[in-house]
Design a protein around this nucleic acid. Sequence first.
RNA 1: GGCGAUGUGGACAAGUUGGCUAAGUCACCCGCCCUUCAAGCGGGUUAUCGCGGGUUCGAAUCCCGCCAUCGCUACCA
Length: 473
Amino acid sequence: MLRVRFAPSPTGYLHIGSARTFIFNWLYACHHKGTMILRIDDTDVERNTVEALESIFEGLRWLDLGWDEEYHQSQRLELHRKAAWACFEKALAYRDFTPASADLEEKSRQGGPWLFNPGMREIRREESDRRAVAGEPFVLRFRVPRDSRGEVRFPDAVYGEQSKATADIEDFALLRSNGLPTYHMASCADDLDLEISHIIRGQDHLSNTFKHVLIFEALGATLPQFAHLPLLIAPDGSKLSKRRHGPVVSVLTYRDAGFLPHAYVNFLCLLGWSPKDNREQMTRQELIEAFSFEGINRSNAVVNFSEQDPLDPKAAWLNAQHLRTMPVDELLPHVRTVLEAAGLGVPADPAAFRHTVEVIRSRFATLKDFATRGRAYFSDDFEILPESIEKLNQPGARELLGELAGRLELSADFTEQSVEQQLRALAAERGVKAGLLINASRAVLTGQPVGPSAFAVFAAIGRERAIHRLRKA
RNA sequence: GGCGAUGUGGACAAGUUGGCUAAGUCACCCGCCCUUCAAGCGGGUUAUCGCGGGUUCGAAUCCCGCCAUCGCUACCA
């Protein structure tokens, strides 16, 4: 049974890189009909916040992909401790009584690799026990087998066969002096207990994996398969950080910018992965079918944003693409949500709503456009832009609009075709270009200087409202 | 400093068992369409494949060296 997990730590909002990791895990699980597990890695009590946890869930819910099982590491601490002490009992770990120190850190930075605190590795069991019982604080460290073996290796589905000399792996901590497990310990113990078969995570963990392999072996487990993902980075090559790059690193920013969840998922998939057959816009099902480790790149991908334009142009394009090609009925709920959030109503007649959306969506790039540029379609309270007023100020435009209103009122029917007929006839009779009336109509009906065919606008707005707006001009 | 990785046009990204003029997408420019703006359709500009050597009839693809960038090097994850 294939089981994968996404394991965020609740120390900040859902990062777009984390979101992509979640998506790739999800895709892999779906492709192989496996199980997707969400595991909250909250062992760092100092940095965890409930706000961050909420924010992560909010982001994941927006992505709208779901998961099958959910765990929180803080509720499984006994498991982690048991695993850590099992290592100790087998003499694969030892107590380190050295107090945390910045000096040692400094020393290691200059003088080559730092492997362990001098003297601690060799303390005899009796002395170690005695000092512990006496209440002396300690961290439990893994005893890297530097004497018995030369290197640690593991295959990575993306980066290939990896190896590292044990001489270059330091004695990392398993348990902190406060008794809580470290990331390495908790993660491995849980991966083992939850029977994770494939660990798909960011490449920043590639070097850590050597330690994890050691832990898995110490616990007598067979290794899961590893697949590391290239990182998402900023245009200047630095890693994406909240401090330096602001809201562009949070998935919720894209929700608030009016992205369709699936369009953003689609975009993220194209960063570091490719179906290799030129497809860009893909449905969820197509992504699931096409996804495989073979399509994952090894180089980091740049999220192409700038101060002027915080949205990656390709992401924006992909969103517009989905917006105008997806089945309308799937789009409608999203439009409704955005309109309601803006305090706008949705047409009572579902067919009218659907028709209106159909008319305007090809000119919009985000969901927000429906409430801003498309406001006049859903409310009588809208602004007429200065550029639109210019079109109204053409000589004779207002008078003709009034006249048109009169004719439309008396007309037998009110369809795109009939309105066009009436309008063109009027223009011909008065000896003006149809364009004059067409552009003026659009301006007064929608407030916008540009937009869909004016005749389609008439039909979408409806007879009564259209006539009213014509007269008001 | 040590270790682990990566380096194809502004961004994404094919191609890496060596072999026609290095795909495609976004962005940008032009044209068509046209009542406007998009969309759509057609076309175009942008790459000495990080740099320098080597092997070869022939290298983005193989070998060596160098450089740059990223990651790990925490009682953070």
